[in-house]
Design a protein around this nucleic acid. Structure first.
Lengths: 219, 219
DNA sequence: TGGAACAAGATTGTAGAACAATCAAGGGCG
DNA sequence: CGCCCTTGATTGTTCTACAATCTTGTTCCA
């Protein structure tokens, strides 16, 4: 349907110059080139990406919104670091949001949407065999994007990407989580396709519960 | 327990110069001096508040995060306008978050926290009789702040204020909602004090349901 | 030796100028 | 009447300059 407002279709992302910095840092984080706690100096990043300090600042704001960096006055921004307690707090919020996303998608599902879920799941399989970190993250986002688009709740689309999941995945790059995803996402998808909100919500919560367990024991 | 990071204790708020603009606009919105759909011109605001254009831009970013303004490239930011459908979408997300906040607070409640809830509730009563719009909003925030502090989930504290509730309240300043709050908040508080998460979550959802009904009929 | 006070450097906070890029409205022309 | 183009308004972006603040290292005194 052509009514998707593509303007900032998935949570506000920076545009133009700031975007380069923003994507660069996210990418460096996924690649492990930057680690939690690391300080990010404005002028360095500005030179590195050939942009003005303003643009760097703007990128930092967006990263802070998504819970990737911590911003405090008169201090260099730092990649956010989560202790176990705060990780679990993030997961608790994530559980509520994923649950809502799954339930909403199940309620709104129609056969028009089958392509989205299919391609997301096949992406996941493909990435799973390749074991490429970037591809895995892409596939994960792809799945949630499908869920959010099917559900059609624009406020949820706006807020969902702001949960601090980037850091969670950067801090606990466990292959076990990926294994869990493969099973859990499929279960969620099945419930959505079946138009069964209760089952979808249950599957969503089960998934977060699995991640929670893995993280708890992995620490 | 002095470990509460007061730095950005309640969702990231702008600091310094940008803060003036940010607060000015929120205030103007609550006072009805700015209306949904209104365009906000950078240079005007900069002069008006005696700050640089970048400060205005920064304020806009924060307002966009909180769902107060809509930002699209090469266009003046505009106060967000919600049609009925999107209002309901916002409320759906709000329901999930408030539910989580209430449940978490109920689980974490101890007698140390009684003051917070008490003062929040008495604030609400006081504001209710005075019927001053600003005081009402302050009291509402006070209540949720208490809930979030009791629950202690830092990620929830970060994300909660970013739900687009500012606009909801700006667009539907119905006295009926305030009446519902008086009853509903007390019921939530009672469940929290009783340490009953299930009841707290139910009361939270009931409240949002009431607001939903009021908005549906008020349009 | 320990530590307090101070000095120097690094980094962020903020305003402003300048220019490019884009958009919106109005005017003229076919 | 409708299309195109010019023009003004507004945002996007970089750069400069300086104030405010933090950090670090050094000196000096007890």
């Amino acid at each position: 349907m052509g009514d998707t407002p593509d303007r900032h279709w998935m949570g506000p992302e920076p545009a133009g110059a700031a975007r380069r910095v923003y994507l660069g840092i996210l990418q460096a984080l996924e690649a492990g080139k930057t680690v939690p706690g690391q300080r990010l100096v404005e002028t360095d990043l500005a030179q590195e990406h050939s942009v003005g300090r303003n643009a760097v600042r703007e990128a930092m704001q967006h990263l802070a919104v998504r819970g990737v960096v911590d911003l405090s006055p008169n201090r260099s921004p730092a990649i956010r670091r989560l202790d176990l307690a705060e990780s679990l707090e993030v997961l608790e919020v994530a559980a509520a949001m994923i649950r809502l996303a799954a339930g909403t998608a199940a309620r709104a599902y129609s056969s028009d949407h089958s392509d989205m879920l299919e391609s997301a799941l096949s992406d996941l399989e493909a990435a799973d065999t390749s074991a490429d970190a970037a591809a895995l993250n892409r596939a994960r986002r792809h799945f949630y994007r499908a869920l959010l688009l099917i559900g059609g709740n624009r406020e949820l689309q706006r807020l969902f990407p702001t949960i601090g999941m980037h850091i969670i995945h950067a801090q606990y790059p466990s292959p076990k989580i990926q294994a869990a995803r493969r099973v859990d996402y499929r279960r969620i998808a099945e419930a959505v396709v079946a138009g069964n909100p209760v089952a979808a919500e249950a599957a969503a919560e089960a998934h977060v519960e699995h991640v929670r367990d893995i993280i708890r024991t992995a620490t």
